[in-house]
C-alpha cells in the first residue's frame, strides 16, 4: 500500500516540549481516497495534523507523492500540495471573504482569478458575500470558507481538522457532501480527523481509530461503522 500512496506516514512521533503526544503512528492516504482518523478529545488528532503539515517538530517519516517531507517547513509543504482546514476554521475575521480566499492562494505563483471563480462556483454563498468581513459569516459559512480557502493553494491532499465542530447536523451533512464532491468531482484526496463517527465513517473509504496517541484499529469506513466497540465509544450505542 505505502508504495503508491499519496501520503505515507511511518513511525510518526511528535509532541510539545518534553511531552510526547503521538507515539509512532503509521497511516496512508491513497490517491483519490478519503481517510478518516477517529479520535476522542485529546487523542492527538490536531497534533497529527500539525505534525503532517510541519507546524511542530516531529520524528519518523512523512512521504508525500514519494518525496520525503519530514523535515520541510509549513510553507514548503503547502507548496508541495498539502493544504489544511484548521480546527475551529481559522477564519481571518477582519479580512473580507475574498481576501481570505486570496490568502489561501498565497503560495500560488501567477493569477488566482480563475481559482476564485471556480470555488465561488462551488460555493455560491461565498460569492454573494465576497466583500463582507469573514467574521460576520455564520459558522457553517465560515467552515465552507475554510474549505474553499484551503483549495485555493491548488492542493492534492486536503487535511481537515474536525470540520463538523460546532455545526448543526444538517450543516454537517451538507459539508460532508461537499467534501465527498471534492473527491468525486475534483479528484482530491482527503485526510479528515473527526469525533463525529457516524457521518465521517459513512463518507470514509478507510479509517483509523486513534487513542491517546496510538492507532488502535483500522478498516474500511463500513467495517468500523459496524464494529461494536466503535459503536459504543463514538456513537453512544450500548449493546
Amino acid at each position: 500500500m505505502s508504495g503508491d500512496a499519496l501520503l505515507a506516514v511511518t513511525g510518526l512521533t511528535a509532541g510539545y516540549g518534553p511531552v510526547e503526544v503521538l507515539h509512532g503512528l503509521d497511516f496512508t492516504v491513497g490517491e483519490g481516497e478519503i481517510v478518516v482518523i477517529l479520535g476522542a478529545n485529546g487523542a492527538g488528532k490536531t497534533t497529527t495534523m500539525r505534525a503532517v503539515s510541519g507546524m511542530i517538530p516531529r520524528h519518523g517519516t512523512v512521504e508525500f507523492g514519494g518525496v520525503d517531507i519530514s523535515g520541510a517547513k509549513p510553507d514548503a509543504i503547502v507548496r508541495a500540495g498539502v493544504s489544511q482546514v484548521p480546527q475551529g476554521r481559522g477564519t481571518f475575521t477582519d479580512l473580507t471573504v475574498e481576501d481570505n480566499l486570496e490568502c489561501g492562494g498565497y503560495t500560488v505563483k501567477g493569477s488566482i482569478a480563475e481559482d476564485l471563480e471556480r470555488w465561488y462556483g462551488v460555493f455560491p454563498r461565498l460569492a454573494e458575500r465576497r466583500d463582507q468581513k469573514a467574521g460576520s459569516l455564520s459558522g457553517g459559512e465560515q467552515q465552507m470558507l475554510a474549505v474553499a480557502r484551503a483549495m485555493m493553494s491548488r492542493p492534492k491532499l486536503l487535511l481537515c481538522d474536525e470540520p463538523s465542530l460546532g455545526l448543526a447536523p444538517l450543516i454537517t451533512k451538507e459539508l460532508f457532501k461537499v467534501l465527498g464532491n471534492l473527491r468525486d468531482e475534483h479528484g482530491m484526496s482527503l485526510l479528515i480527523v473527526e469525533q463525529n463517527a457516524g457521518m465521517s465513517l459513512a463518507l470514509a473509504d478507510r479509517a483509523y481509530v486513534l487513542e491517546t496517541g496510538s492507532i488502535v484499529a483500522t478498516g474500511t469506513g463500513d467495517e468500523l461503522l459496524a464494529d461494536d466497540t466503535i459503536k459504543e465509544a463514538y456513537l453512544g450505542v450500548v449493546n
Binding site: 503539515s53 507546524m55 517547513k73 509549513p74 510553507d75 503547502v78 507548496r79 493544504s83 489544511q84 484548521p86 481559522g90 477564519t91 481571518f92 475575521t93 477582519d94 479580512l95 481576501d99 486570496e102 490568502c103 489561501g104 498565497y106 503560495t107 480557502r149 493553494s153
Partner: peptide
C-alpha cells in the same frame, strides 16, 4: 498587496496563516 493580506492574516490567526503557506 498579497503581503498586506498576509500581514492581517498573521494578526488575525497566526496558525491559520502558517497553514496557508505564509512564512
Amino acid at each position: 498587496s498579497r503581503i498586506g493580506r498576509a500581514m492581517v492574516a498573521v494578526r488575525d490567526n497566526e496558525t491559520a496563516a502558517a497553514v496557508m503557506g505564509v512564512n
